[in-house]
Write a protein that binds this DNA or RNA. Structure first.
Lengths: 259, 259
DNA sequence: ATATGCATGTCGCAC
DNA sequence: GTGCGACGTGCATAT
């Protein structure tokens, strides 16, 4: 790979040269060295000197990782603009972002490694079993909620939020379904109660059933659910995934509902 | 640094050796190469072959970054356990986590770079102007909320959540303050209304004032605020930061309130 | 562009 | 450990 850059223990001037090349060629850039970091924008932060790992990507995202923790100590989302300069053997990298206006300044005093690589990666990432998949499974097989359930509207807008799935039961009662892909907590029940409250206020003579559909229910959620008189339906993510896998994957939610 | 490991274009067997050493010495490990990734746990994901950057940290966190995007495509939080093996010149790395039980499997077919480094970094990260700082500023100067405001309790527990700051106004009316460090949205007003509702239900004969303290208010939040009869107080983050900077930094919130 | 809610969110703090 | 809310949250989606 002729464009590859790997510099071991370069001077800051040599490092700056490699970094410039990597940035202008839109390579994946890694810089490891002793630096201090300052952020100004939505908040402000200061990180005094220490050895860290800097990642810069071609889409203008930048991450600074310390020796611990999952999350970067400082960062800038994609779309940032980079500037670098050497001054008194200090290597300074700035990442600027508009909207919101914020800046990240990294100052290296010594560099242990610079790597600039063109990553070849065209693969498609696939994630299963999120909230959207649960809803899709229910639309394919409404009996997952209850026998005779008939969905009519997805993401129905109310003042207090959006109903995940709206429909009727076999007795023509209105049904409000709230999905949670993980163990449902009190918050989910409160969300459901907000929707039902608003609906009951708007249409006083109808009966509304509140359904919380999730793989499990936390104890506090169960108590609150009974207080409000709502119902819990256990939905197994794996079962949902299986139902999805047997259906054509290209159908959108809107299409399901307008069938 | 005798423990440093840098391998350029190693065979998978050589790479595995370096990776083993890095993992057992708890170094910061970087592996760049062509790999496929599979995750099973709270959800499931599959990423077919392509070149990526793998980071493994001494605290048991692991990140896989692609050439774009701020967030890692796959990861595991701190506390994961690592296993590696070579089989048919395929280098496999597994990261396991209990509670919740989830696993990440990375299979390298070729490696462009392995780096294992001990990062020296003892610096303390400081973040200014978050919600906690706003509260601290108000405790130092309660008039920021209103003339004669007297805070009495921080994070006061209710069934429906925790009140950011609780106190009295000059006329001995109860005051509930909700802080937002950014432009406040509808959610903030609904949160405030939950608290006030519960308080009014519990203590029917008292008057409660709901205050939303934030740098700005979104249009929908303003409407809802008027509906509920709550009040908005503009709090400038920079002003808060200034007030903080003039006070001894070591005082905790509890100390402020018990003074 | 703004608004809204999800996320394998993560993280810290209180119980 | 569980519960709960903040986060420089980031992110997709719908309007």
């Amino acid at each position: 790979m002729p464009s590859d850059i790997v510099l071991i223990r370069p001077s800051t001037t040599e490092a700056a040269d490699g970094i410039e090349k990597a940035l202008s060629s839109h390579l994946f850039l890694i810089v490891i060295g002793k630096c201090q970091v300052e952020y100004r924008g939505r908040a402000r932060s200061k990180l005094p000197g220490g050895e860290r790992v800097l990642l810069v990507k071609e889409d203008g995202s930048i991450l600074i990782h310390r020796k611990k923790d999952y999350s970067p100590v400082n960062w800038q989302p994609p779309g940032s603009l980079f500037y670098s300069e050497v001054h008194d053997s200090l290597l300074k990298i700035r990442a600027l972002r508009r909207q919101p206006h914020e800046s990240l300044e990294i100052e290296f005093e010594s560099v242990r490694l610079v790597a600039g690589l063109a990553l070849r990666d065209e693969a498609e990432f696939v994630l299963h079993a999120d909230e959207a998949e649960m809803k899709r499974a229910v639309l394919l097989k409404p009996a997952l909620i209850m026998e005779g359930f008939s969905p009519s509207e997805s993401e129905k807008p109310l003042d207090s939020g959006f109903i995940d799935l709206y429909g009727k039961d076999a007795a023509e009662r209105q049904v409000v379904v709230e999905f949670k892909k993980d163990t449902a907590s009190k918050e989910a029940v409160l969300q459901l109660s907000r929707y039902i409250n608003e609906l009951r206020a708007r249409i006083p003579h109808r009966t509304f059933r509140g359904i919380l559909a999730a793989p499990a229910l936390r104890k506090d959620a169960n108590r609150l659910l009974k207080t409000f008189g709502f119902e819990f339906v256990r939905l197994d993510p794996r079962q949902c995934a299986e139902i999805i896998s047997q259906a054509p994957p290209s159908l959108t939610l809107t299409k399901y509902l307008s069938q």
